[in-house]
């Protein structure tokens, strides 16, 4: 009798919770809950890394997947981004000053502190983040994660740790490559379109840049890597509802990562400006 009464109370509470979950409050609560579970997963992943539960083979495989396989698209997008920047800057300054000025400076600054890290992170989100969520989500809905548990394996250790390490180390590496290729693309355009010599372009580029300029973008890429891999793994582990659920989780993973990358970018830049780091 006691049990039935308590079950009735729970059912009543759950119906109330269901009603609340359909309101804006519910969406806020769900978001806070999502943050909590993602933080818990990230904590467990980092703890496993520090305890040394790292499979070298799986980590290298993921590094190849994140780094090497993303390289062609990063080279292509960065090269064209650098060229577009140089074209726009040259065109704008030609209109204002009758000649293209600061093309090297603005192109290299923009690539090193903003476009290199952000563009690389966005491309990796679309390519790698989506793949991580889809793979883990499919494993979740086909009971493969349950199978891992029954075979004595912690899915976080087996799946999240190698992907976490791969993203954390490969995204900054891709960012450096993106910066170099983007600036190089800008230089090629400047020499051909604006008839700027390559030495003049490099002089403009390097005169105003310090090591901190490069470091700012480089350091940001570590934060972006954390966002991509934590969101992707969390969305994958929480996918529900068959193929449709995996599709929704993947879309949500990409959108969430992109939004958080841009928000994090603002705050990291604001921090740099506040601290007056040049």
């Amino acid at each position: 009798m006691m049990m039935k009464a308590s079950v009735r109370k729970i059912v009543k509470f759950e119906r109330f919770a269901q009603k609340v979950s359909n309101t804006s409050f519910g969406i806020v609560f769900a978001s806070i809950e999502g943050f909590g579970t993602a933080a818990e997963m990230a904590k467990e992943t980092i703890r496993d890394i520090f305890k040394g539960f790292i499979s070298a083979k799986d980590t290298v495989t993921q590094m190849v997947e994140v780094g090497w396989s993303s390289l062609p698209i990063i080279l292509l997008t960065s090269f064209f981004m650098g060229m577009v920047l140089a074209l726009q800057v040259g065109s704008a300054t030609s209109n204002m000053f009758n000649e293209p000025v600061y093309v090297g400076t603005i192109t290299s600054f923009a690539m090193a502190i903003e476009l290199g890290p952000v563009l690389t992170a966005i491309v990796v989100t679309g390519r790698v983040g989506a793949a991580i969520t889809a793979e883990i989500g499919t494993m979740e809905v086909t009971e493969q994660l349950d199978a891992l548990y029954t075979l004595g394996t912690n899915p976080i250790r087996y799946l999240a740790v190698p992907r976490f390490l791969a993203c954390f180390f490969m995204l900054p590496a891709l960012t450096v490559i993106s910066n170099i290729v983007g600036i190089y693309g800008g230089m090629i355009l400047s020499t051909n379109t604006w008839e700027l010599s390559s030495s003049a372009f490099w002089a403009e580029a390097l005169d105003f840049m310090t090591i901190c300029t490069f470091l700012h973008g480089f350091i940001k890429s570590f934060f972006f890597a954390l966002i991509i891999v934590i969101v992707a793994c969390h969305k994958g582990f929480n996918a529900k509802g068959g193929a449709e659920g995996v599709g929704k989780a993947t879309t949500s993973s990409v959108m969430t990562s992109m939004v958080f990358i841009l928000i994090a970018d603002y705050f990291l830049t604001a921090l740099r400006v506040t601290l007056r780091i040049k």
Binding site: M139, T142, E143, Q144, D146, A147
Partner: peptide, 9 residues
């Protein structure tokens, strides 16, 4: 498992 749950990879 009912649906085998073999690891695809």
């Amino acid at each position: 498992f009912q649906e085998s749950a073999l690891f695809d990879s």
